[in-house]
Design a protein around this nucleic acid. Structure first.
Length: 133
DNA sequence: CAGGTGACTCTTT
DNA sequence: GAAAGAGCCACCT
């Protein structure tokens, strides 16, 4: 199997398109699902070089900052603001620091036929502790 | 072929 | 919890 670059990018786009509305995925997650373990930066590069014509839900791909948190990773402040706006428009909440709770909005890739759906946002499994809105 | 870059991520201070 | 370092992969000069 020749893992040509075009092939890798094609896989990345395919994975990105699978992220459902109202959910987010991390670069590393996308890269791994596309067959590029540790290739988070590659996933980011594919998004940066992509164009609106690719019709990718780019706003749903975010940077992981903690084990259960993520945040917008776009450097350009204008683009970052647009991403935040588009995420909030589809129901993803961001706090003042721009952080996203992966326990609630993180995408759980369904390997096979869709068994679970994204009907209602998951409630945080963690009992009330730190909230720091 | 060598070196620099980046919409990343993890570990250590 | 913020900041700094190092590791990572593919791309571009």
């Amino acid at each position: 199997m020749s893992s040509s670059v075009a092939e890798l990018y094609r896989r990345l786009r395919a994975v990105i398109r699978r992220v459902p509305r109202g959910r987010v995925a991390t670069y590393g997650q996308i890269a791994e699902l596309a067959g590029i373990p540790g290739g988070a930066r590659v996933a980011a590069a594919s998004l940066k070089t992509s164009t609106p014509a690719d019709r990718l839900p780019w706003q749903r791909i975010v940077g992981k900052v903690g084990p259960r948190r993520a945040r917008i990773a776009i450097h350009d402040p204008v683009g970052a603001a647009l991403q935040r706006q588009r995420l909030e428009a589809e129901g993803v909440a961001l706090d003042d620091a721009g952080r996203i709770d992966l326990d609630r909005y993180g995408w759980l890739p369904t390997a096979t036929a869709g068994s679970r759906r994204a009907g209602s946002p998951r409630r945080r499994p963690r009992s009330g502790s730190t909230h720091r809105a």
